[in-house]
Amino acid sequence: MGKLPNKILFILGVFLAAAFSLAPFLWFVSAAFKDQTQITAIPPEWLPSFSVEAFSSTVTQHGIFHYLWNSVIVAGGATLVTIILGALAGYALARLSRGWAQITLMGILACAMFPQIAIVGPVWRFLKFMGWLNTYQGLILPYVALTLPLAIWILAVFFREMPEELESAALVDGCTRLGSLVRVIIPLSAPGLFTAAILTFIYAWNEFFLALLIMTDPARQTMPVGIALFQGEHTIPWGEIAAASLITTAPLIFMVLLFQRRIVTGLSAGAIKG
């Protein structure tokens, strides 16, 4: 790594990066373990008293696990559907003649550029027409549509990189085209699928505006909506908001910790090789 000053600079950089990324969030969620007076204390109390009051009230009073469960279904469902549709479309685009593939892909990507606020109204009317308001599929399908463009793009680039010979070999062995896609191409593109899946999951887990409008039935509301509804007209329940935020974010942090290497390699192995 070079000379000593370089090394010190580097360590300083690492420290800075970690602080930049973590400190604000850590400070915020520490409020979840504090009581109300500690939360608003100046000078700040760095060490929380580890009161569990905020947690217990988010769980008992606001039924946070219930929102969490809805989020799991919606985000999980959206990810599954997006990956299946995205893989099929991505494969087709990767094998389609270049000109057509380019045009189709451009069209799909243009879809991703429209402001979401404007599509909310028509989507809502369509869902009402189908009777899908306040249902899981009513939220899953819009999420699929919103995440598909990026997923298709990532997967198309990924599949294109797969040598066609592999596929030909499978075909010679008696596989159908779909069979070769499922048995040969998909296993080999696991990193790309993985990246697309994580991007979709995080999006669906975090989306808030559509969910607020579509899900008014408390039995179906997802986590971000739950947090948005926390804000009462009384004092701001910082402790409870922080507790709920921690509970919402924890699964994602867990995923990131677990899969950080894959997220990085998945992206670089395929999509973004400029």
């Binding site: 009402k128 607020l212 409008l213 008014t216 408390p218 509301q221």
Partner: peptide, 25 residues
């Protein structure tokens, strides 16, 4: 009675009620 809930802010809640009523829900 089935209770459905929107946000507490009057303006944001108005958007949700209006969305349903204007579409003759």
């Amino acid at each position: 009675i089935k209770v459905q809930v929107g946000p507490h802010s009057s303006t944001q809640y108005h958007a949700i009620v209006a969305q349903r009523l204007k579409n003759m829900d």
